[in-house]
Each structure stands twice: as structure tokens, then as C-alpha cells.
């Protein structure tokens, strides 16, 4: 499902195709395709990205910085970090565990399990928020019990964390499963036969093989966790200074017509996205170097 999210070390095959008359298009076709696709790229990807930073700095650096150090912004940043710090390790543990069970053993229903792991990705974020309202909300399954014990999940931080965990659920598992499937289990079996215990086998044999995929899975999960909007919006209750994450803070500022401040906070999230893509490119470069060395 998550084909767009997985790493792949791109091989540069352009020279191979461009170097042969039989696999080369006429120059005008080539440049038309490049021009059309680049125009599309600039219109739909590059311009929105640039717009974020231009709008953020429209009223100068002072307004920009003021928007970021304002107390509500700081508390939104803090809550976003909390959600990510909890969601990423939870989904990391799950992802590694699921990938180990699925790729190292045979069992019935494996394909169903893989499909179920993908499920959160195909569920609308709004529905993702709704399901927790139905379970933990005032009218939900555990609502009365939670109220009796003075616990709050919906319209509070735990709900935001849960919704974040749900929407970032599959990424690390999806990253690791194809990777570990391709590597097989011979190396691990050799380690165990030589006397290593399970943990040693994982730490010294499996982990070095999957470290790049794992790192990208973590970075991507983190980016999605910090940026989630729809699901978190349903469970947050939008209490300023208390249950607002950065994307929700952006929404509030924007709806109050404080455009420069909204874009200032948005620019932090856009920077996070750019760093994520930068790390991804760097990891792919590392992974392709390893591949070249092996060949």
C-alpha cells in the first residue's frame, strides 16, 4: 500500500537509454516531456513550498520570530513534540516486532495481517479521530468509567497521542517488511546455530542489515506524527495553550486572519518536511553506495 513511502536506491539508467538510437526519443519529444513535467512540478509542488516561506516573512523577521515565541505557539510546539516522542517509539517497537514475526516465520493468515497493518493508512484521518471519540468520548464505551475516575482522554493529551499513533501506525512496519523479506533468514539462523541468543542475533546480525530502512521509517513516522491534522483535530477540542498541536495552531491563526503568524508556524513544519526529505535522500545515497560495493 505504502509504495510512495518506501526507500528505494535509484539507479541512474538515463544514460543507458539515451545512449542508444533504438531507445531514444527525438529531441523535441524529450524536451516536451521534460518541460511538461517540470511545469507541473513547479506549479503543484515547488510554488506551494516557496509560498509558505514568502508568506511567513511577508511582515519581516520581527513578526516571524514573535509568532514563534508567543506562549500559545510554544505550548503547541511542546505538545507536538510530546505526541511524537510517545508515538514514534511505540510504533518503532511494533514495526520491528511485526516485521520479525512476518518475515522470519511462516504462519497462516500472514497476508491478512499485512493488509490489516496497512489499514490505518487507507482510513480517512477524520475517521481515525472519530473511532477514539466513540471509544473514550463522554458518550463512548469507556466514557462513564473515565468520568467516574476523573480521567480525560478525548479533548486532552492522551487522545492526541492515540490519534497520532493510529495515523503513523504502518510506516515503520511497511518499511521493514520488504527489506527483511529480501534478506531472508539464513544469516540469523547461522548466528543462532553458532550460539547467539535472540537479542544478540537481532542486535548484531539483523539490525546492521536494516539500519537505513529503520532510520527512514523513524524519520517518516516522526514527520507524519508532528504534522497530523485531521485525526488530531477531531480529538483535540482545540483548547488554546492546552490541547493545540502545531498544525492546529496554524489553523486557528489562519482562521483569525493572522496570516503571517500562521505561515510562520507553518514554516517550521515545512522545514521539518524538508529535513525529512533531505535525510531520505542522504539515506538512499548511503544505501546505493552499499549496494555498489556489494556488486
Amino acid at each position: 500500500m505504502a509504495a510512495a513511502t518506501t526507500l528505494h536506491a535509484a539507479a541512474d539508467v538515463a544514460a543507458r537509454f539515451e545512449g542508444r538510437a533504438a531507445t531514444r526519443e527525438p529531441a523535441w519529444v524529450k524536451w516536451t516531456i521534460i518541460a511538461v513535467s517540470l511545469t507541473f512540478f513547479v506549479l503543484f509542488l515547488l510554488m506551494p513550498l516557496i509560498a509558505v516561506f514568502v508568506e511567513a516573512l511577508r511582515k519581516g523577521w520581527d513578526t516571524y520570530l514573535a509568532a514563534l515565541v508567543e506562549p500559545d505557539a510554544l505550548s503547541a510546539i511542546k505538545l507536538t513534540l510530546i505526541a511524537a516522542v510517545i508515538a514514534v517509539p511505540l510504533n518503532l517497537t511494533f514495526g520491528v516486532s511485526a516485521a520479525w514475526a512476518i518475515t522470519k516465520f511462516n504462519f497462516r493468515g500472514k497476508h491478512v495481517l499485512i493488509t490489516l497493518i496497512d489499514l490505518p493508512f487507507s482510513v480517512s484521518p477524520v475517521v481515525a479521530g472519530l473511532i477514539y471519540v466513540l471509544v473514550f468520548g463522554a458518550q463512548g464505551w469507556f466514557g462513564p468509567w473515565l468520568q467516574e475516575h476523573d480521567l480525560k482522554i478525548i479533548f486532552a493529551v492522551p487522545g492526541i497521542v492515540l490519534a497520532t499513533v493510529f495515523v503513523t501506525f504502518p510506516f515503520i512496519a511497511r518499511e521493514l517488511i520488504p527489506l527483511m523479506q529480501a534478506q531472508g533468514k539464513e544469516e540469523e539462523e547461522a548466528a543462532v546455530v553458532l550460539g547467539a541468543n535472540g537479542w544478540q542475533t537481532f542486535w548484531h546480525v539483523t539490525l546492521p542489515n536494516i539500519k537505513w530502512g529503520l532510520l527512514y521509517g523513524v524519520i517518516l513516522t516522526n514527520a507524519r506524527a508532528m504534522g497530523e491534522f485531521g485525526a488530531v483535530s477531531v480529538v483535540s477540542g482545540h483548547i488554546r495553550g492546552l490541547t493545540n498541536t502545531m498544525p492546529l495552531h496554524v489553523e486557528i491563526l489562519y482562521n483569525e486572519y493572522q496570516f503571517a503568524a500562521a505561515f510562520a508556524v507553518a514554516s517550521l513544519l515545512a522545514l521539518l518536511a524538508l529535513v525529512t526529505l533531505g535525510v531520505k535522500t542522504w539515506i538512499e545515497h548511503q544505501a546505493s553506495k552499499v549496494k555498489d560495493n556489494e556488486e
Binding site: 509542488l45 514527520a223 508532528m226 491534522f229 500562521a262 515545512a270 524538508l274 526529505l277
Partner: peptide, 15 residues
Amino acid sequence: IDLPFALPTAVAGIA
């Protein structure tokens, strides 16, 4: 190319 995937949807929306 992966920008829409990494960029928070609210940021994309206002941009």
C-alpha cells in the same frame, strides 16, 4: 516529489 507526503496537510492547505 515526496513533499506532499512529508509536508503536513494543514501547511499544504494554507499554502
